[in-house]
Amino acid sequence: MSVRRLRAQVRLELTLLARNGENLLISLGIPVGMLLFLHVVPVLPDGSSAPLDALAPGALTVALMGSGMVALGISTAFEREYSVLRRYGVTPLRRGELVAAKATAVLAVQAVQVLVIGGVAVALGWRPSPTAAGLAAAVAGLVLASAAFAGIGLALAGRLPALRALAALNALFVLLLFLGGVAVPLAVLPGALAAIGGLTPTAWTVAVLVGALDAGAVDDGGALPGVATALAVLVLWAAGALAVASRLFRWS
């Protein structure tokens, strides 16, 4: 692992991620817009709008799907299609360095997402009060969710032609948006859909964040066991998705 190569590659990956307008839209525009919309518009059956304690974790989860799954997946699919990855293979840049550079770039983007979306939610009145353990659980949840979404994105990007990967990833994004308990609460969905939605990494990420960031829930003694379960499920999702991605991935 060469620091010089890694640093140069991280800079290139960050430049390319930040340059792409669609990436900015799906990474920041959609989650912030969703947060604002659902906060202002009463969508719940009782005529009220959803509480920020649910909306903010949902928007953060959507943001992770946008950057970790959609933006990373689509950019990687096109790099594969245009032989960019193949060409890296004839330079001294090692695969491990390329993967580390992409992971670093995506995590950096996600740090910005957390700051922006968290900031907007706080400005709207969100007052998370996590314990130290809850905060650690939330960070772990964000990282695991990011790995799971990146694995899903790379599994599709590593095999499909770029345009099909683009279509599939966008479709999956919308599907998870509606089934994963972020745009629409799981409780509102019909039973079968709610059951499917409950299995998605999106729903488990929301479960970790909602539970971990709400100190009140901890005081009840009810939330943290649920958080631990959700984290365990996310570990499975992350490991599984990355394993499938590395099995399916073709460099050219």
Partner: peptide
């Protein structure tokens, strides 16, 4: 080794 591939491999967004 310096290689110029026929299918390019030059990143189009950079």
């Amino acid at each position: 080794l310096g290689v110029m591939l026929q299918d390019g491999g030059v990143h189009r967004s950079a």
